[in-house]
Nucleic acid binder design. Structure first.
Length: 417
RNA sequence: GGAGAGAUGGCAGAGUGGACGAUUGCGUCGGUCUUGAAAACCGUUGAACCCUCACAGGUUCCGGGGGUUCGAAUCCCCCUCUCUCCGCCA
């Protein structure tokens, strides 16, 4: 949810919202409804003040004086009810308009649509396509079984098998160890949350059709542990001097992938269920932009640590989604497709999400405010395997990245005999 | 799944229709005392919003929502959560 005071008073804030596609006329309508709301609020509060004092008088007066006073109080109550109804109406108008306004883009975000991203840098040599693409390689190596998964669960599911499982555990452990160095608190969160949490985390109503719902219970499978981590401090006030508070969530993630029919159908690039280590930071507003750079740096450490060629892009305003004020994507080179594909992203939601979650901080002398929330992928397992299957494929075998060897005890994974 | 109890400030815990935004204790912060600290003593200490240059003022908040009443932490209804016991279970 956006900050109406800033929208009213800060031209840069408003420009950022427009860059994200907010309609100028709709913003004006929102501001005028908000002005109206404050007028109605004052009216209603004045009447309530009168009503309160009238009631107090009744309590303090002699029994024989009460009936007359009760009648007066009753009349105020009628006016109050009218004023409150008017207030409710304008409040619901404001509420309806405000949810449609996205978090304004930061000044450093390129204005434009999906393809107007800015490439910040490319790191590593682009590899040439190996004989087998990631999907064929996974099957041939006995690391992924999609056919049998289809039989039992449907398309976009897979059995991860053998050395692939050891690779997954190694990736998770190595990533977690790295995050521990950066003072993240490891978390295994609930993968089922209530509807309320989905709404507060900003996934509902926009992405409702991407989420699995549990029949019979008001519960939904999370598409990322970000959802559960965002709710960790709902309604709480964190000590300013303890910020940033960083969490590393590990969980399975579930996504319906509605509307992606025919896209990335081979292998485990895009699946309904995968495991992921996710970073989440609760930051002080004054340092949240530094925190975003830190998350991006960690992501680069992870990808380059695995020896994968990648680039960093600054995502354009039109492709940020409602909550992000700025987002970096890391994309790894996928030689079979001859292009970079997304492996991680990290975003600063500023106070957009915190406003709804009511997660605040308190500093010295009662100074406080809403925290800024940031999140970023540390390691999405199935997709990371895809990139390894191609970029680390040598003579039909998989050369395990050096950093993972101590974690899985494998140097090279060879095809089955 | 069955039965019962409960939800009040940072924490503990009073409060059964009017002086309660809420007794008290602990904790917090400030002070006195002390070479310093502890103890003791004195004081202080919730949040959001509206209005205002500021001061002052006002409204709301006792798990959430609705109701009764001139007036609700207190009475009624619904929901959520927590705890205890039984059953079941990795």
């Amino acid at each position: 949810m956006i900050d109406l005071n800033l929208l009213r008073n800060d031209p840069a804030y408003r420009r950022g919202a427009v860059a994200k596609g907010a309609d100028e006329a709709a913003l004006d309508e929102l501001l005028s409804a908000e002005a109206d709301r404050r007028t109605r609020l004052t009216e209603a509060e004045d009447l309530r003040a009168r009503s309160n004092s009238a009631s107090k008088e009744i309590g303090a007066s002699a029994p024989e004086d009460r009936p007359a006073k009760i009648e007066v109080a009753g009349r105020i109550k009628t006016d109050l009810a009218e004023a409150e109804e008017a207030l409710r109406q304008v409040e619901s108008t404001v509420a309806g308009l405000i949810v449609a306004v996205p978090n304004p883009a930061h000044e450093s975000v390129p204005v434009g649509e999906e393809d107007d991203y800015e490439v910040l840098r490319e790191v590593g040599e682009r590899t040439v396509a190996p004989p087998l693409d990631h999907a064929s390689f996974g099957e041939a190596m006995g690391l992924v079984d999609s056919d049998r998964a289809v039989r039992n669960s449907g398309s976009r599911f897979a059995y991860l098998m053998g050395a692939a499982v050891r690779l997954e555990f190694a990736l998770v452990q190595w990533t977690m160890d790295k995050l521990l160095e950066h003072h993240f608190i490891p978390v295994v969160p609930p993968v089922l949350v209530r509807e309320e949490m989905m709404v507060d985390a900003g996934f509902f109503p926009t992405d409702r059709n991407q989420v699995y719902e549990i029949a019979g219970d008001d519960l939904f499978l999370i598409g990322t542990s970000e959802v559960a981590l965002a709710g960790l401090h709902r309604g709480e006030r964190l000590d300013a001097d303890q910020l940033p508070v960083r969490y590393a969530g590990f969980s399975s993630c579930f996504r319906r992938e509605a509307g992606t029919y025919g896209k990335d159908t081979r292998g485990i690039f895009r699946v309904h269920q995968f495991d992921k280590v996710e970073m989440f930071s609760y930051a002080h507003p004054e340092t949240s932009w530094d925190e975003l750079e830190r998350l991006r740096t960690i992501q680069e450490e992870i990808v380059s640590g695995l020896g994968l060629p990648y680039r960093v892009i600054n995502v354009a305003s039109g492709d940020l989604g409602a909550a992000a004020a700025k987002k970096y994507d890391l994309e790894i080179w996928l030689p079979s497709e001859g292009r970079y594909r997304e492996i991680t992203s990290c975003s600063n939601y500023t106070d957009y999400s915190a406003r709804r979650l009511k997660t605040r901080f308190k500093g010295d002398e009662g100074k406080g405010g809403l925290v800024h929330t940031l999140n970023g992928t540390a390691c999405a397992i199935s997709r990371m395997l895809v990139f390894l299957f191609e970029n680390a494929q040598v003579d039909g075998s998989l050369v395990v990245p050096e950093v993972l060897r101590p974690y899985c005890g494998l140097e090279i994974i060879e095809p089955p005999a």
